[in-house]
């Protein structure tokens, strides 16, 4: 693929004009609500906080998609499992139990990883030759089943998980220029950055990582090189589930985890992954941050109940563009 044109084309002019128009509309709507820089700053910070979670979830989508070509709708269920298991294990431990928190997090991640492996073995592997529609419905069915198990085990009431800094339900806050920042948001940003860095190292430097990448490039060729695509598929699902669980755990203190939290988070994670073109981890992270930013600012200047509507407008716009926001993304029109 060659992209030679350096001069601004008709399309770039249109997109720049559109961007300017959107910013103008946002400022106009914000002006009606008497928004100053402080309010916008708050919206941006909140948006980037939510966006980092979407990014972390998106990494799981990218992992499974690159290796198996499947979009795993059950990814949101892994997020829920991570948060709920960790909260259950930590339980009512007296506040300030840092070791207990770490142990709860590790067990939750391991357990969810096992669930991810089981999902691959029990549902994806038997149907590996099925067509796209069948696989979509299967992963959706897995999501419903896991959420159902969550409902049976934990009921409809929300759990509580302490913030990492204060080890208490009430989180500490930082203030600068009138903008409030919860310390958990820093943990979320840090975790996302760390996971992205480790993932990049793993995929680029280790043999297993390279084998995973080989499967995503060409399954048949990988098989000829002695790589087992089925084993890599299990590996990808396990890793994606573990990352999903981690996302759930760092998110848990910022929201109250509940059995049906996975649906919306999974969808947003997918939107973020699609924005990044579905095959690139760094692009997915940028996609997640942009998504969080867009929906928060847009909902902030209009109506908070419409937040998800903006997220899905972004999704459809991205899908219709047929590749992510970055030119290097895959052609989304191909199945």
């Amino acid at each position: 693929m060659q992209r030679v044109s350096q001069r601004p084309t008709y399309k770039t002019i249109v997109s720049v004009a559109a961007a300017v128009a959107i910013v103008a509309v946002i400022l106009a709507l914000g002006a009606q609500k008497n928004f100053g820089p402080q309010q916008y700053g708050q919206l941006v910070v909140a948006g980037l906080g939510a966006g980092a979670i979407y990014a972390l979830i998106a990494l799981g989508f990218v992992m499974v998609y690159t290796v198996t070509g499947i979009i795993n709708f059950a990814q949101g269920a892994f997020v829920m499992l991570g948060a709920m298991i960790a909260a259950t294990i930590y339980g009512d431990a007296s506040s300030g139990d840092a070791v207990g928190l770490v142990i709860a997090a590790i067990i939750a991640i391991l357990a969810t990883t096992l669930v991810g492996v089981a999902v691959e073995r029990l549902t994806i592997f038997p149907a590996r030759n099925a067509d796209t529609l069948t696989l979509i419905i299967i992963t959706v069915g897995v999501y419903i089943a896991i959420q159902g198990v969550g409902l049976v085990v934990w009921g409809t009431s929300a759990k509580a998980f302490p913030a990492f800094t204060t080890l208490d339900i009430t989180d500490g806050t930082l203030r600068f220029w009138g903008i409030v920042l919860k310390t958990q948001t820093l943990w979320i940003w840090g975790t996302t950055a760390l996971v992205l860095a480790l993932l990049t190292l793993f995929l680029g430097r280790t043999l297993t990582g390279k084998a995973l990448r080989a499967c995503s490039v060409n399954k048949e060729a990988a098989r000829l090189m002695g790589i087992s695509p089925t084993r890599m598929s299990v590996f990808a699902f396990g890793l994606a589930a573990g990352m999903g669980a981690l996302a759930g755990i760092v998110l848990a203190p910022a929201t109250r985890p509940i059995y049906d939290m996975g649906l919306k988070l999974g969808l947003k994670g997918f939107v973020a992954a699609a924005m990044g073109g579905l095959v690139s981890s760094p692009a997915a992270v940028v996609g997640g941050l942009l998504l969080g930013l867009t929906e928060n600012v847009a909902a902030g200047v209009t109506k908070s109940g419409l937040k998800d509507v903006f997220a899905f407008i972004v999704l459809i716009a991205v899908l219709l563009r047929k590749r992510g926001i970055f030119a290097a993304g895959t052609d989304l029109e191909r199945p």
Binding site: T123, A127, T134, I138, V140, G141, I144, A145, G148
Partner: peptide, 17 residues
């Protein structure tokens, strides 16, 4: 009625496989 959802999801997966 809570188990309904589990049965539903499992059934869906089985039928599709």
């Amino acid at each position: 009625g809570e188990q309904e959802a589990v049965a539903f999801g499992v059934l869906l997966v089985l039928v599709m496989i």
